[in-house]
């Protein structure tokens, strides 16, 4: 189309203002939830110990969502995070029960999750199979391996907890905020990775328009492989954090983390199709999600209705987001 006169400043600023709002949308949701939560609970919510609890809980969802986020940037999806999470727990249980040093146990379980991510990455990058299907298959395989190795009961992991507490003693309140430190630290490192390595722009290019990425000389295979592998690593770390927080777990404990990991990414404003987004926003998304659940618990909302509410919230959110996008484009 011929551009005779591109309608200038007024239009342009309005458009950009709307797009900023869109990328900060997680912040808006978070702020709203925070205020609602404080009001509804008559201040109980804003109690520092409750807030800390929320943040700690959010750490586990957050770190899994981080790995999911990178995969989604490239236009893919990781459905196996729940099962791989469980696999990590299984490996931890098995090792600790066999008397392995907790540090080594963590290493082994991370090795396991990284391998799963690697396999996913290899299959996705080298065949034309859609990520949905590949990670679906991995989900089933990982879950079954985990359950076979350890069985379905929860195991206590006091050695793990003690080891981490010991090593975090040097920091005031170290043992307490360990999960939070790991989470925020990981997000920070990943954001450095995105900004200062070629993989950042490459990831977004693949998600935004894979064909253009190929024509531009992006090594699509390598990037996809890397992204799924990092995803596996994040999932493993999440499992370790969960075991630390609640002192042990069973291999099925990973399943409830799949959907929230995706929801956190979306609430944070990343498009499900990839090509744009920001890992810091996903922090907000994870916290917002945790606040929602926390709020509902405090209000003693029937746990079964909680799922309904989450469903409704997610739907309305995505709807509002897409309408906003349309508005900012028409501007």
């Amino acid at each position: 189309m011929k551009a005779i006169k591109v309608l200038l400043s007024a239009e342009r600023t309005r458009k950009q203002a709307l797009s900023i709002f869109r990328s900060g949308s997680g912040l808006v949701v978070f702020a709203v939830l925070f205020i609602v939560a404080t009001l509804v609970t008559g201040g109980t919510f804003a109690n520092p110990s409750n807030l800390l609890e929320v943040l700690l809980r959010a750490s586990v969802i957050g770190i899994v969502a981080l790995g999911q986020n990178l995969v989604i940037f490239t236009g893919g999806i990781e459905l196996s995070v729940g099962s791989v999470f469980g696999l990590a727990i299984g490996i931890l249980s098995f090792c600790l029960k066999s008397g392995v040093d907790p540090r080594l146990a963590i290493l082994y379980s991370l090795a396991g999750t990284v391998s799963c991510g690697l396999i996913n990455g290899l299959i996705v990058s080298r065949t034309k199979m859609p990520p949905f299907v590949v990670t679906l298959g991995m989900m089933m395989i990982a879950q079954s391996i985990a359950l076979t190795v350890v069985g379905a009961q929860a195991e206590d992991m006091p050695q793990l907890v003690r080891m981490i507490q010991e090593s975090m003693r040097f920091l005031p309140a170290g043992p307490l905020v360990f999960p939070l430190l790991v989470w925020i630290g990981s997000v920070f490192i990943i954001s450095l990775f995105i900004t200062f390595t070629k993989y950042g722009p490459n990831m977004f290019a693949i998600g935004g328009k894979e064909m253009a990425a190929i024509y531009s000389g992006v090594n699509v295979r390598q990037v996809k492989l890397l992204v799924y592998t990092i995803g596996g690593l994040c999932t493993g770390i999440g499992a370790v954090l969960l075991c630390y927080r609640i002192g042990g777990a069973n291999p099925l404990a990973g399943q409830p983390f799949l959907l929230p990991s995706i929801a956190a990414v979306i609430i944070g404003g990343t498009s499900l199709y990839g090509g744009e987004g920001n890992v810091y926003n996903t922090i907000i998304g994870a916290i917002a999600l945790t606040i929602l659940v926390n709020l509902m618990n405090i209000m003693r909302v029937n746990p079964f209705i909680q799922d309904v509410v989450m469903g409704v919230v997610l739907l309305s959110f995505v709807f509002a987001l897409s309408k906003l996008k349309k508005l900012s484009e028409r501007a």
Partner: peptide, 26 residues
């Protein structure tokens, strides 16, 4: 084929040369 339309101009311009150099850092 030519552009990742949802990304900024600067990123599109840089997309090829960041890959053609052998360094990972940008």
């Amino acid at each position: 084929k030519g552009l990742v339309t949802c990304r900024p101009v600067s990123e599109n311009i840089g997309l090829t040369f960041i890959n053609s150099s052998n360094t990972v850092r940008i």
